[in-house]
């Protein structure tokens, strides 16, 4: 069996704000095609970890490599070429207020390094991906006219419009009602399975992780479907639990449920009661 390609690697990464280690010696490797679920309470450092992975935050110590290229120490202009292969949904969507939905989704097509798209191709692509997230009727609306859930969907479209190999989702379900949250999770899974992207998702809800691990998009029915939880399926999704900047657990869903760590236990318990 060939060794899977390393997509993202953190080596003893430390990020410090005002004397506090917001990321404390974080080490992990993400391989191609893998799904990674990052769980943790508010303030655990999940967002900082994602931004560090994209080179938006420069670590104080340690090394970060994206697609086997070390990005620590690269200049912003050099980072653009690497970031062009990564999509990201920010926590509150971070859509540009001053632009329409179509302009927001088209933004990476026109601005990302090395992207050469004609106006017509861009519009076609924007229309098709907005259709994917069921928002084809909002092209000329502004973000302020949409609900929180709709903005997340636009964010998902913007993160995937360039067909990136790796996509980050920062708390896509935070602050949403359960029905909208499930809808968002289906769209995330659909985007992942249509193009087999390596996916990193941050959440404070264990059930989001369980969905990522156990559901697959079926292109024939156009729906996501629950799979039988085999050992092989279990291996495809890795969970990571963060507490105060440290990774306190890394493993599969089965291992997560078997974990004896008291903090991890709390997460599993809280999800079961919910």
């Amino acid at each position: 069996m060939p060794v899977p390609e390393s997509i993202l690697r953190f080596e003893q990464v430390v990020v410090t704000y005002d004397g506090v280690d917001v990321l404390d010696n974080v080490t992990f490797t993400l391989t191609a095609g893998e799904t990674r679920v990052i769980l943790g309470a508010a303030g655990a450092g999940k967002t900082v970890l994602m931004k560090t992975a994209l080179g938006l935050i420069h670590p104080d110590q340690g090394k970060v490599s994206l697609f086997n290229q070390e990005i620590t120490g690269l200049r912003e202009q050099e980072l653009f070429a690497i970031r062009a292969q990564v999509g990201m949904l920010f926590q509150e969507s971070a859509l540009f207020d001053s632009m329409t939905i179509a302009e927001n989704v088209a933004y990476p097509l026109f601005n990302q390094a090395g992207s050469q798209v004609s106006r017509e191709d861009a519009l076609a692509r924007v229309e098709s991906i907005l259709k994917d997230v069921e928002l084809e009727h909002t092209l000329d609306k502004f973000p302020s006219e949409l609900s929180g859930g709709m903005r997340r969907r636009v964010g998902i479209a913007r993160a995937n419009v360039t067909n990136p190999k790796l996509v980050f989702y920062d708390s896509p379900t935070a602050g949403l009602d359960p029905i909208t949250a499930n809808n968002i999770m289906s769209l995330v899974i659909k985007q992942r399975d249509q193009r087999n992207t390596t996916t990193v998702i941050v959440s404070h809800r264990l059930q989001d992780g369980a969905m990522m691990a156990n559901y697959r998009f079926n292109s024939k029915t156009g729906k996501i479907e629950r799979q039988v939880h085999t050992a092989e399926l279990d291996q495809r999704t890795k969970f990571m639990v963060m507490q105060k900047g440290r990774i306190v657990f890394e493993g599969t869903e089965d291992e997560l449920h078997a974990s004896r760590d008291p903090y991890v236990g709390k997460f599993v318990l809280q999800a079961k009661s919910a």
């Binding site: 931004k51 994209l54 938006l56 912003e76 653009f80 970031r83 062009a84 990564v86 990201m88 920010f90 926590q91 509150e92 971070a94 859509l95 540009f96 207020d97 933004y107 990476p108 601005n111 990302q112 390094a113 992207s115 913007r158």
Partner: peptide, 11 residues
């Protein structure tokens, strides 16, 4: 609202 980070992330 992280729009400036998004700008950097999007090139």
């Amino acid at each position: 609202t992280e729009q400036i980070d998004a700008m950097r992330a999007l090139g």
